[in-house]
Amino acid sequence: MNQQFNFKCASGELEEIPQQLLQKEQFSFPEVHLHAEEMVKLSKAIKDYRNEEYVKLPFCVTIEAEALGAKVNLGDKNIGPRISQYSINSIDELGDIPRINYRKNRIKEVLDAIQILSDEGEKAILSVQGPYTIAQSLIEPKLLFKAARKDKDKVDKLLNLIEDEVVGYIKEGINRGVKIISYSDSSGTLDILGPNMYEELSGKYNLNVLKKVSKVLKDGIIHICGVTSASLQNSGLIKSISYELNEELTYSEAINKVIDENKNIKVIGHNCINRFNMKMKKPKVWVIEW
């Protein structure tokens, strides 16, 4: 039997924009969430501040949902963007979402910023949300649960559409020079949804995304958030192999070392991308397979 995983998210303040940078006048809010040039400036400042190897974009989790129709409150310096209005209000509207237009809105800005950073020689991470997490920004979760019981086909159609858009977004990111996809479906976990709904609403779509994306990654990798990969493993959809290293390295150095020695590795999980810079005495890298 596959090993069961229990991963507790503890990224805490590493998920936030550092206070010291928030106070600097050169960064204005919500502009850092709106314009490619501002995103470039802030992502580089965070990288320098934390002495990291990678720049990471975007600074919120609402980009995909907004591109698919949800309304977003962009917030201010203290509190970042969040969904202000769902775009789907009834089960009948479930199949009715727009395709992502990469030439419009904030998703265009994020991709433009990735392009600028890559052209400047920066190594960029693109954070991407999984289909269920996006879906629950488009529709009230309760409606989605009810639809999953009574109108399974409609829910399947919606999540398939989102899955295609997520894969498309990741491909766009890769074409613009992204080195690492940081992938997470943090709202659609096994302990929240339970085994049946997890399989129906989250797990299988995440697995599809991973399968499709792993084929198009050039020299990059996809790093799955530990909460997300633990759910996938505990429901039997993926398996994992650990590579243990006998020298003190940061998590990202350890990953680079494992990948250098095993060029076919594309998917890493069971850990947090925010720990990239942390020194580990005996680093362990979990490679995901299915």
Binding site: K142, F145, K146, L193, G194, M197
Partner: peptide, 12 residues
Amino acid sequence: EYYIPELLMCSD
């Protein structure tokens, strides 16, 4: 036996 989706639907 039940998870969050089931509890929410019971409450409705």
